[in-house]
Design a protein around this nucleic acid. Structure first.
Length: 459
DNA sequence: TGTAAGTCAATATT
DNA sequence: AATATTGACTTACA
């Protein structure tokens, strides 16, 4: 099994924890002698120093399960401790823009939910963390940039040329005229708060609106259809991610504290801010133990939980909890409580009774008043019970080598079933925003029922 | 087609 | 200035 051998060394390369001891070299000297980059493809724009022949993709493919949360946590620490910005890090190490880096660091998705492509940045980060000269190199880059900047500035001053990186020839900044006449600069759409409100309400009623509904929404809100569609896509996926991090945090909440981690901020996630004027929903939430709706008990699917809490703003209050639902497609982990029919399938379908309540149209004169406010919620899950051992994965905060290592990482390389099933978080302090929740659960269950689907796991 | 996952890049916030 | 947010795009699937 020579192959397994190579896999092994590879694994070490990426392995989260660094080798306990760094006796002489480890498999790969971080010396960037020069990547042959045999791949004739224009891929991998990144310098990707270090290892010699493997493309990042190959590394990703063979990489063992990585603790994305732990990795981002460490990266954040290193960056802040050394005054290195996300932009530099992103462009230099990950090949991503600042915004993407920020997002990635703040809301990493769990490894098993990432696609090959999505894992790439994490593998890169891990590789970077393992590189003893990582900080040094970045600092150099930073210096070089600054130098270049200064130089440019100088020359421009004396040269009288506002010059700019000759990257793109499109530069119509002439006199800064208010209107560049041509809309070459598509003005970014910015949804007004009321519009977002309306969309959220619509989402709560129907996370997967039919084209018809979308059309209606667009009309009522006076937005382009594509904008509404995009909004739903983005909202769904962002809510999903929000859940991921909550899961993780809830799971690790108990421990982890110990370590030193000086600057480890981490915390947050739920600004609880809220204030949100209108929409007094919530408040109600009667959580009676009396097992309310049986349906709720199932573990829902993907978005359902989503509804439970809105990404940032709307989070009413952390007090309640929802039955957490597992993300979508990949299957539900729910080992126990099996009763729910197959796994809920997001994609919509023929849309049934499309009843979408009229969205309170902010713009429109009409004063329909929403119906959404009906807080009435059927109660949600009883306290459920699932306990969450959640992945014990402990992120070795900062640097705690030895401690957290678990041999299982190797197993995960080839997908050890057991691991997967284990996950399941339990009572996170998730909020529940009922109605929509149940609706979508039901909707999905019905759908799933009609096409029984096996539950499958990625690994 | 429609959805999810990833990103970009323009704005907003800090 | 650095970071965070978010509408729009792109790509991969089913």
């Amino acid at each position: 099994m020579s192959s397994s051998e190579s896999v092994k060394s590879l694994t070490e390369l990426v392995q989260q924890p660094c080798p306990p001891i760094e006796t002489s070299k480890d498999g790969k000297p971080p010396e960037p002698s020069d990547p042959p980059a045999p791949d004739s493809q224009p891929a991998t724009p990144l310098p990707l120093s270090g290892h010699s022949a493997l493309s990042i993709q190959e590394l990703v493919a063979m990489s063992p399960e990585l603790d994305t949360y732990g990795i981002t946590k460490r990266v954040k620490e290193v960056l802040t401790d050394n005054n290195l910005g996300q932009r530099l890090f992103g462009e230099t190490i990950l090949g991503l823009t600042q915004g993407s880096v920020s997002d990635l660091l703040a809301r990493p998705k769990p490894w098993h939910k990432l696609s090959l492509k999505g894992r790439e940045p994490f593998v890169r980060m891990q590789l970077w963390l393992n590189d003893p000269n990582n900080v040094e190199k970045l600092m150099d880059m930073k210096r070089m940039e600054k130098k270049a900047y200064m130089k440019r500035r100088h020359s421009s001053v004396s040269d009288s040329q506002p010059c700019e990186p000759p990257s793109v020839g499109v530069d119509y900044s002439q006199g800064a005229s208010p209107q560049p006449q041509h809309q070459l600069k598509k003005p970014r759409v910015v949804l007004a708060p009321e519009e977002k409100e309306a969309l959220k309400r619509a989402y709560q009623q129907k996370p997967y609106p039919s084209p018809k509904t979308i059309e209606e929404l667009a009309t009522q809100l006076n937005l382009k259809t594509s904008t509404v569609i995009n909004w739903f896509h983005n909202y769904r996926s962002r809510i999903r991610r929000e859940l991921f991090i909550e899961e993780i945090q809830a799971g690790s909440q108990g421990q982890v504290g110990a370590s030193d981690s000086p600057s480890a901020r981490s915390g947050r996630a739920a600004p609880s801010s809220e204030g949100d004027s209108c929409d007094g929903v919530e408040a109600a939430d009667t959580e009676e133990p009396g097992g309310p709706v049986a349906a709720a008990k199932s573990q829902g699917g993907p978005a359902e939980a989503a509804v439970a809490r809105v990404p940032r703003e709307e989070a009413p209050r952390p007090a309640e909890q929802v039955e957490r639902a597992e993300p979508p497609p990949p299957g539900t982990p729910g080992p126990e409580d099996a009763d729910d029919a197959g796994r809920p399938r997001p994609p919509d379908g023929p849309e049934g009774p499309d009843g979408l309540a009229p969205v309170p149209n902010p713009a429109a004169p009409a004063a329909g008043e929403d119906a959404a406010t009906s807080a009435a919620a059927p109660a949600e899950g009883p306290g459920a019970a699932r306990d969450g051992a959640e992945r014990s994965c402990a992120l070795p905060s900062t640097s705690a080598p030895a401690a957290a290592r678990r041999p299982s990482s190797l197993q995960s390389l080839f997908g050890l079933p057991e691991a997967a099933g284990a996950r399941d978080s339990r009572d996170n302090p998730l909020r529940k925003k009922k109605a929509a929740n149940l609706n979508s659960i039901i909707h999905r269950l019905e759908k799933a029922a009609s096409r029984e689907e096996p539950i499958e796991w990625e690994f």
